[in-house]
Every structure is written in C-alpha cells, then in structure tokens.
Design a protein around this nucleic acid. Sequence first.
DNA 1: AACGTTACCGGAAACGTTTCCGGGGCGCCA
DNA 2: TGGCGCCCCGGAAACGTTTCCGGTAACGTT
Lengths: 344, 344
Amino acid sequence: MGRVGIRELAAELGMSISTVSRAMNSRGEVSEATRERVRSAAERLGYQPNQSGRTLRRGATGTVALVMQTNTARTAMGETFYFSVCDGLQQELSKRSMDLVLLPVGPAKDPYRYLVNAVDRHIADAYVISNTHRVDRRVELLTERGVPFVALGRGGPEGHAWLDLDFEGVAAETVERLVAAGHTRIALASDDGDVNSTWEYTRGCRQALAAHGLEPAAEIRLPDTPEGGGLLAERLLAMAPAPTAVMLAQETLALGLYRRFAEAGVRPGVDLAVVGFRKNPVCDYLVPALTTFAVSLEAYGRRLGEIVLARVASAKDPVQEVWPMTISPGDSDTAPPRVAERLG
Amino acid sequence: MGRVGIRELAAELGMSISTVSRAMNSRGEVSEATRERVRSAAERLGYQPNQSGRTLRRGATGTVALVMQTNTARTAMGETFYFSVCDGLQQELSKRSMDLVLLPVGPAKDPYRYLVNAVDRHIADAYVISNTHRVDRRVELLTERGVPFVALGRGGPEGHAWLDLDFEGVAAETVERLVAAGHTRIALASDDGDVNSTWEYTRGCRQALAAHGLEPAAEIRLPDTPEGGGLLAERLLAMAPAPTAVMLAQETLALGLYRRFAEAGVRPGVDLAVVGFRKNPVCDYLVPALTTFAVSLEAYGRRLGEIVLARVASAKDPVQEVWPMTISPGDSDTAPPRVAERLG
DNA sequence: AACGTTACCGGAAACGTTTCCGGGGCGCCA
DNA sequence: TGGCGCCCCGGAAACGTTTCCGGTAACGTT
C-alpha cells in the first residue's frame, strides 16, 4: 500500500485538497464540522503531511538544529551535559510545535564547513551552536546570512544572542571562598583549547584575585582528560613553593589529579584544596567529594528554548544572558592553608 | 541578496536548469567541460541544492537518523557512548555522502509515538534505534512500513538487522574468571528497566554459572544510578551468607556501591570482588580500578554504518551481529574468596 | 427585490529540484 | 551524400504541500 497523500485523503472525503490542507493546519476559513471530518479521516488513513512538500512551500522547516562537537577525547563528560540541555530545549520548542534535531560534527570534520553546509541546505530554521571559541567564524556566518541562532556560550563578535554559564561568578565565589579560608597561593588549571568558556573562567579568576591584591600562583593549561589531571598533579608537585589550592575549569581533571596525588601521598582537602567548576554526578562520589557549582541543565535548556523561539520570531534585541550556579560544597577544599604550607 | 537557486545559476551560465542539475549530481550525460564550469560557478555564487526540493523530487532524504533516549538519569557516569558511536557512524555514512542526524527523545516523550511521527513525516531514509526492549513495538512498526533500519541492540521479533555488544560473552568470561578464582557465591546486579541488554547479560550470566553447577547468589535489580549502587550495597551487606563477588550490568552502580562499602568498611577487591560491564574513562580512576570490558565504540559505530548502508541498498539478508569486547583488568576483582568468606 | 457581507470552499499557481523525453548537431560508415 | 548512432543538451512534467484568488450560497439589510 502506497503512502497516502493529501490528494488521496481529499478524494476519499470528496473535497478539495485546499480544504484538507486548511483543516489540517487549522488556518484559513474552514467549518468546524469539516475540520473534524478531515482530522478523523487523516487519523484513520494514517495521513501525515509530507515534510519536504510542506517545507518547500512554506520556506520553513519547523525544526531547530543543535550542532555539537562529538569530540570525545576532549569532553569526556560532555554527553550528559548535552542530553540534559536537550531535554529542556525540546520541552520548550514543543510548545510552539517545533522539532529538535542534533547535528553531530565529528572530530574529523571542520565545524565551520559543516555549519555552512547545513545552513546552505536549509536544514533548520534556527541553529544553536555550542563550544564557541574566542573568535568564532560561525557567528559571523550566521549573522551575515540572517539565520536565527543562539550561541550556547559567549564568543565571537558582539551583537548576537547567547546564553552562557556564569564563569566569572563561579570563579569569583571560588576565589572568595579560598581567600576567606586563608589561601594565597592559588593555582588555576584549565583546558588548553581556545574555547571561550575557559577563557572567561580564567579571566574571572584573575579579576577576583586581583581584588585581593593577588595573582594566580600558576596558570596551567592541559588537555581536558583524566590523563591531563595526572599531568596537572605532576606540575603542582614540582612547584616550590607549592600552591595551597587549585581551581579546575574542568572537573574531568580531578580524576587524574586525585589518583596522582594519592600515589604521591598528597590528600586533597587536607594537604591541598581543590575546587571544580560544574557539578556532575561523579563529583559527589569522588573521595573526598569535589566542591563544585550546581546548575539545573534542564532549566538551562528551557531558557535556551525560549531564546531560540524569540529569535525565530524577531531578529531584534538579542538576549545575552548569564545563567547562575549555586555552590555545592564537598570535602575537597576544607583544608586550612597552614596545613598545606608544610608541603611547600 | 536572495538565495541563489538552480534557476539563477542556470541563467548566469546561460544554460538550462537540467544541465546544471546533471552537472551538480554527476549523473546523466554531461560533458566534462560544462560540469567543471557549473561546479566552479556554483562555488562562486555559493549555490547549494535546496534540500526540500531535492528530497521532494527524489523521494529520499539522504540522511540517516539515530534516535536516542536522552534519559539523563540513566547515563549518569561521564558517558560518551553515543558520541563515540556517532563518530564512527558518520565516518562510514559520509563515504556514501549521507548525513547523520540525531533525534533526541526526552524522558517526557513516548519513544514509540516519537518514532511514528518521524517515520510518517519521512525525516530520514533509514533509522537506527537504540535502547531496544525485550518486546519493542518500534521494530514491528519499522518492518511493517518497510523502512530500512538497524537496531542498536537486540530485541523485538526476529528477522531484522541488529548490532549489539557481546553481553553473553562478557558475562561468560566474567563468570569463568570469578569461578577460576574460587568464587561460588556470585551476585548479579542490573538495571530494573526492561531494556534488552540487561536481559541478555543476566541470561548469559545464569548460563555460564549453570555450566559450573552454580546459580546466582542473588539477582538484584535497581535503578541504574549512583544512588542505586548505594542500595545495592545495602542489599549485599544484608545477605547471609554474603556473596563473595558481584557482577554489575551497569558500571554506574559502582559509584554508590564503592561509597557505601567504604562507609561500612568493606573493601572492593579485597573483601569482595566487583566486575563491571563496559569500560568508560571513569572506571580506571575508581579506587580500586574497576575490572570491565573495553570496546572501540568508534569501530562499533563504523560497523553500524556499514550495516545501515547495506540496509538502505537492499532489504535482504539482515545482518545480526554481536560485537566482541576485551577484558580490561582492574584491581576490583583480585580478592580470593577465602578472604571474603570471613564476612559471611 | 437588489445589494453588500459573510462563511466556506475549489482551482491553480508556486516552492526548487530531478528526470523523462525528445531533438539537434556531429562523426562515421557505406 | 545519405543514413545511422551517439553525445549532449533543453523543455517540461512531476514530487506534495500551502496559499492566493475567485466564486457560490446563505443571509441580513435597505
């Protein structure tokens, strides 16, 4: 049995295809009775408007695309992040009956070229780009073409809509917390890529330290992997005087850091304070539990959805918003610095 | 400036749109010279064939959809399962210049209805469904409609293509390993959902134990979360005689299990053997490192891509394949059972 | 009774592409 | 030189839908 199109449905009902179309889309003038008749017949025959035909005529796809790097080597914890955000995003989009698709760009592909292709072929009506860089050509591309989009993360030239986590806020609060505990030699560890998020975190950290007349004891950049955490530990152990606290822009580093420290007999939370950035389920189960900052990614995704919908509706007044996070204290930064001093 | 379509490009070149189309698709009779001329002009003007128009005419979208549950509670441990598989899948699909999109189905949505909708609207030419259940209506749906698909995981009625991890093999090897070490009271912990994977794992475990005249000391089912792991520990501690080993169908359980054991003074790998299923980056950094089974998810994804392409090409001879995994020994199952006996 | 208004519906064009069909050159052979 | 086949190319139909435009019937108003 072939697929049933609008023509077949109209023939079955003995009416014109225009009426059927109107009834299905609840738009234009059509009587309530026929609308109901069409709807039930469509249900019965399993008719669904063909997406390509509709898109071709309407010029709009009714979908939003979230393009994401699936670079697994870098973002070991990345999947749950995206999934949670997607849940919230999808919830919000479905209110306007828009769909969400995810466009995975593998490590072999060039993110820019990938996006150009997607935009050219008009895959979606709006795009969410993530993992924004300090200078990001994708932002230029999308603004130039007039395609609605929201950046999940700041970066690139100004004037576009973005939503981002509160990197400075977290950095500042972390510094306050450590300084209040008496720490003065605070090291800073982050990913060695040029994603914008670590740049913001680093900047926030420097600013907050400067407010206390301090500067980072070290700024160490390495791959955002468990192995990178091991390297970080080596670097910290080699320093003299040793820092009494270390701030991690990526929690993944904590894994290797903890292990290397354990081998060296250094106890996080006792001999040295460690604070991560974003809480994930694993953080609580590290020993000692890692102090991080929690955020409802679902709510974050919902807000993202709101912004996307606003963007589709109007190109004016781009929202630029920082999303707050709340501290989730663990046992990894309870060390008073005087204990740690003995190591130096 | 409006989007440039095939008509504009043809006008610019002074030739017909049919020739342009032929040149762009390298099909039909067209001279090498004009092909080159068209290609370069397309490049220059930034022409890309409109996807909807093409799809409408061709009746094929040129994309494969991987539909995946974004049930975030489930995949709590820094997972990159889907991402890694996507990388491999995408690599393989791009050889036939097909695209990959990911369809996220949130916890609020009904996976079956979601798929029905996607298929009706002809989102993709082929589908990969994951998280297959013991009886899975989606399999029936897709076979009935004659839509090419591959199940990432067994399940549902027979006769369709699937690719799955080697649950029985892993279960058998784990049992052999534990029995060889002298264990006889082996407990089995798994997710309390009805996904097919845990069913296969459990079955393989029972079979392997039966071959030694044994049966599981317990079959404990709980939520696949860190908290579930805590519950698991409670259950194990309450048993008398206590099992000397526990097999985990999901590694996430290890997080809560380790912690609750630590609180109770029970040392995994010394007082009790623990073995997980699939290795992820965190497993190596647990203390003690969790014994699991490793698999190249990228290669797995590439194989998946091959199968999908074969499915698109021909509906005959569905591939049904189990993917091997290799043990990655940690320190969590080195306990000889005689030590553990003292607990019972 | 004539006319304007309203509510609903049908015909047909349009969206952008691919592909079938036919036709014009051109070379080759008899 | 005529006929035949081959290589390219142009015209036009088709894919399935939405929407503009016009038209009919019913109804109220003057």
